[in-house]
Design a protein around this nucleic acid. Structure first.
Length: 821
RNA sequence: GCGAGAGUGGUGAAAUUGGUAGACACGCCAGAUUUAGGAUCUGGUGCCGUACGGCGUAAGGGUUCGAGUCCCUUCUCUCGCACCA
């Protein structure tokens, strides 16, 4: 036998997973003696337990947080690190529609599989805190929060045009609809969606728009995610201005007004026409009889236009004249009123004043229909106001052709004109948002029932102490297609007594909540998962919250992460939680691509199954490889070759045990390398720079191979450094060394600063910035000595000989540079 | 178009404050070993050149003794938003 068998990762991994489970090694306890600054709440985005099982993307983020948590525990922190399942959702229900299998059955089977797969990777979760959002004990509190929102006036029913998805049989929130080249599509499943006027439950997230925006400032989140949220909220400042409709052709006096929203009230003098959205309420009223036919036809065409056509890029502007005129309040001029579908009824007031000189869209429209263009903003105060515009100039500048306001810079003009409008009560400063209220109800079965009863037209909440309102069993899961959920067919569930005790007959709300509801607050339930008196005990909330580090994919930028922040702020306002924001620091792990660098997908056949990897190479190899691939936040392609490289590393670590442990002092060189390694691994792990930490451990292992024996002085701290990364093999090595398990809770090694500094350093000798030679000197050698020694160097003399030295740059421990002519 | 980010060997990637570009790993080449193990061990491996040397971090310019790193211009790619007045 020349060498031992390949390291027995299967036995080792099973052994230690069993050990951790039996000993509940990673149970988190609220120990009051640990001060707040020594506690950490590290959270993973919990998975939706799909039928496909775990994919290699899941373990990436989970491994990162796991290493970080294990590191923190060894550093003496009290760490909360839980896991659970986002288990309501459409796939299980769609499967139920096809097969008749209860979604609970498939969901729970999937959860068992996920849990097993996650456990097979050796993550240090406190499994006592596991939650699943579909369980009545959990959604009882989701319903409780909904009723709190209702009490606060933040939940209401409205009939507005909603995104409806035929394929999913339900309405969707704005956030769940994507604009694609094929038109609007559902975020889940990529099905076509269309707008339909429907009556649905809404949550007043817009009331929190400003706070959701401001709250971003203090968060340690990726700039891109913050930008996406800001963009989605879309706050803009401007003014509403009311224009009087001029007497029409009929000559009758009119007091009708049209209100517009503009972010450029300073361009009011340049408003040469007005445009209403086709759906605007005043369209019919202002239209003159001779234009009525044309207008009616345009409105009808706009209504029938598919969303594909309406969202198509760069299409030409269309519109028709109503025959009516409005009076521009600043100069009394009559301006024509048009309608066009480039104006959205849902934004601002659904009407605009058009300033073609300084807005590209208005310019385009004016060109199309030959409407007048007036210049009211000049680039410089010297510019000739009469010089015509060649294109729309939206940039700020100085007012021209604006009467008494001429010469004012844009910023100042805005304030002046708003004051002017407010004085005359024809307008006021206004803030607008792109953010719309959250369409919250779904016409589906597999979700939390909304705990309200319709008692003769009035909604009455189910008393909090009677929650949960559980999902009834149904015959069929198929969406009705009539805008009602399958629950509507369960007569004995729908018909009930009014919960207010009046004895009136009531009908239960049959819509359910969207999948986002459960994930809006799951991080709070982990704190106290079995509590039946509150969603979580306030002391436990105070003990752990807010979440210190939240790791997950970037795909939830404006869905989950915005909704959860909204609910959290409401919970804060009613005194349930201790902070205004739930997640202090957010890190998005980069996607793992297939071997060819493309997205993993079934159709490309490049999907890597983590089960197979664990089976063939072990959990430790999987973990270390996923972290060694590259920076956590970066997208990176999978490489089976790379995986075997990591496997070889762990195998080499294992084979080092063939060499006898030695109690003798380690060679100084090795000791110095150890202390450098401790420093680098500590710093890098703390910064989630796992790839470079692993490199450093590889360097140490390579070096250890140069010695016949394994100095205990090196081996012991090395095993501890390795423990967060490859915990199974580390536990085994720890035990083999005769130490008491578990290494997972052993103290993190400390480094001695003086041993991390080299005694001898290589100083580079340069001539005109080019490296010509090197020399070894003791660290800290002073400048003068370095310069003298360098000047005597043969190679340097060759290059400096016969030339005059203009300057010498000496950087101690780094270089000496001779500047010659 | 707007917003965010990224461009370094054949590949994944390293590189305090500007100070030896390419650590570590894969792959490849040569050798040792002959074991059938996604083997192991030793050495080599940015490009051009026999060599002295020269050239190299998307391209061009600038600051500096010195630039992957700082500044300007341009190009490419990824992601997000997209008629939001």
């Amino acid at each position: 036998m020349r060498r031992m068998k390949k390291y027995p990762f299967r036995e080792i991994e099973q052994k230690w997973q069993k050990y951790w489970e039996e000993n509940r090694t990673f149970r988190a306890v609220e120990d009051p003696s640990v001060p707040k600054e020594r506690r950490r709440y590290v959270l993973d985005m919990f998975p939706y337990p799909s039928a496909a099982g775990l994919h290699v993307g899941h373990p990436e983020g989970y491994t990162a947080t796991d290493i970080y948590c294990r590191f923190l525990r060894m550093k003496g922190y009290n760490v909360l690190h839980p896991m659970g399942f986002d288990s309501f959702g459409l796939p299980a229900e769609n499967y139920a529609v096809q097969t008749g299998t209860h979604p609970r059955t498939t969901t729970e089977a999937n959860i068992r599989r996920f849990r097993e797969q996650i456990k097979s990777l050796g993550f240090s979760y406190d499994w006592d805190r596991e939650v699943s959002t579909h369980e009545a004990d959990y959604y009882r509190w989701t319903q409780w929060i909904f009723l709190k929102l209702w009490e606060q006036g933040l939940a209401y029913v409205a009939e507005i045009p909603m995104w409806y998805c035929e394929a999913l049989g339900t309405v969707l929130a704005n956030e769940e609809v994507l604009a694609t080249p094929e038109g609007p599509r559902s975020e889940r499943g990529n099905h076509p969606v269309e707008r339909r006027p429907l009556r649905q439950w809404m949550l007043r997230i817009t009331q929190y728009a400003d706070r959701l925006l401001e709250g971003l400032e203090g968060l340690d989140w990726p700039e891109s995610i913050k930008a996406m949220q800001r963009n989605w909220i879309g706050r803009s400042e401007g003014a509403n201005v009311r224009f009087t409709v001029a007497d029409g052709a009929t000559g009758s006096a009119s007091t009708r007004e049209i209100e517009v929203y503009t972010t450029r009230p300073d361009t009011l003098f340049g408003a040469t026409y007005m445009v209403l959205a086709p759906e605007h309420a005043l369209v019919a009223q202002v239209t003159t009889p001779e234009h009525a036919g044309e207008v009616r036809a345009y409105v009808e065409a706009a209504r029938l236009k598919s969303d594909l056509e309406r969202t198509e890029l760069n299409r030409d502007k269309t519109g028709v004249f109503t025959g009516a005129f409005a009076i521009n309040p600043v100069n009394g001029k009559e301006i024509p009123i048009w309608i066009s579908d480039y104006i959205l009824v849902s934004y601002g007031t659904g009407a605009i004043m058009a300033v073609p000189g300084h807005d590209e869209r208005d310019w385009e429209f004016a060109q199309q229909f030959g409407l007048p263009i007036t210049k009211v903003v000049a680039r410089t105060p010297q510019e000739d106001p009469a010089e015509p515009l060649r294109e729309a100039t939206p940039q700020y500048g100085f007012a021209v052709n604006s009467g008494e306001f001429d010469g004012l810079p844009t910023e100042e003009f805005k304030d002046r004109i708003i004051a002017w409008l407010e004085e005359r009560k024809i307008g006021e400063r206004t803030v607008n948002y792109k953010l719309r209220d959250w369409i919250f109800s779904r016409q589906r079965y597999w979700g939390e029932p909304i705990p309200l009863v319709n008692c003769e037209g009035e909604f009455v909440p189910i008393p909090l102490d009677q929650l949960p309102l559980t999902l009834p069993e149904v015959e069929r899961y198929t969406p009705t297609g009539t805008g009602e959920s399958p629950l509507a067919a369960v007569t004995e569930w729908v018909e009930c007594e009014c919960p207010d005790g009046s004895g009136k007959k009531g009908k239960r709300e049959t819509n359910t909540m969207p999948q986002w509801a459960g994930s809006c607050w799951y991080y709070l339930r982990y704190l106290d998962p079995k509590n039946d008196r509150a969603l979580a005990d306030r002391d436990k909330i105070d003990y752990w919250m807010p979440v210190d580090l939240y790791v997950g994919g970037a795909e939830h930028a404006v869905l989950h992460l915005l909704y959860a922040r909204f609910w959290h702020k409401v919970l804060y306002d009613i005194g349930v939680v201790n902070t205004d924001e739930p997640f202090l620091r957010l890190v998005n792990q980069g996607m793992i691509l297939g071997e060819g660098g493309q997205k993993m997908s079934k159709s490309l056949g490049n999907v890597i199954n983590p089960d197979v990897v664990v089976q063939k190479f072990g959990a430790d190899s999987m973990r270390v490889y996923e972290m060694f691939m590259g920076p956590l936040r970066q997208e990176k392609p999978w490489s089976t070759q790379g995986l075997t490289g990591v496997f070889r590393f762990l195998d080499r670590v294992w084979r080092l045990t063939e060499r006898p442990l030695s109690a003798k002092a380690a060679p100084e060189e090795l000791l110095r390398l150890l202390h450098k390694t401790i420093r680098k691994v500590s710093n890098d792990t703390n910064e989630l720079a796992f790839n470079t930490a692993i490199s450093q451990m590889m360097i140490l292992v390579n070096e250890l191979y140069r010695y016949e024996t394994r100095p205990r002085e090196i081996w012991d701290p090395f095993v501890r450094l390795l423990a967060p990364y490859a915990p199974h093999i580390a536990e085994e090595l720890w035990e083999m060394m005769g130490k008491a398990a578990p290494v997972s809770l052993a103290p993190w090694p400390e480094y001695r600063e003086e041993l991390t500094r080299d005694e001898q350093v290589t100083v580079v000798l340069q001539v005109n910035g080019k490296v010509r030679s090197r020399m070894e000197v003791p660290a800290g050698t002073d400048k003068a000595t370095l310069q003298t020694a360098a000047a005597q160097n043969e190679r340097i003399q060759e290059y400096t000989g016969g030339r005059s030295v203009l300057k010498v740059i000496v950087v101690p421990d780094k270089l000496v540079n001779f500047v010659v002519n």
